[in-house]
């Protein structure tokens, strides 16, 4: 799972986060370090699709984002698909 948009959705599924918090969270749970350019490329695409939205913040500069219901649905579908692949892969490796 290294698609930046999916990683951002997975990070926001836990709660609202700004860019730096997302980078740290993604590195922690996925072991992937997204650079600022890649991260904001993903944020731009996700906001254009309507899957995330800017959340309220008291910080003028650090903008947190929140997951929209459509984004949550997409993440659920993708995680379910990945789960199928992981289970099939593990089963086949055991039989190999």
């Amino acid at each position: 799972m290294s698609d930046p948009t999916l990683l951002v959705l997975a990070s926001l599924a836990e709660g609202d986060k700004h860019g730096y918090a997302m980078m740290e969270d993604i590195e922690r749970f996925a072991g992937v370090r997204l650079g600022p350019g890649t991260l904001y490329g993903a944020i731009t695409r996700l906001e254009q699709r309507g899957w995330i939205r800017p959340a309220r913040s008291n910080d003028d500069r650090r903008q947190p984002y929140a997951l929209n219901p459509e984004g949550r649905r997409h993440l659920e579908e993708q995680v379910a698909n990945l789960n199928l692949i992981v289970r099939a892969g593990l089963k086949r490796l055991r039989h190999a």
């Binding site: 700004h18 730096y20 980078m23 650079g35 600022p36 904001y40 500069r61 650090r62």
Partner: peptide, 19 residues
């Protein structure tokens, strides 16, 4: 504005700059 704030917060590598 928020992208500049992120650049301030992160310990940038050459790979980040290229990115």
């Amino acid at each position: 504005q928020e992208f500049d704030a992120l650049l301030e917060d992160v310990n940038l590598t050459w790979r980040d700059v290229f990115g």
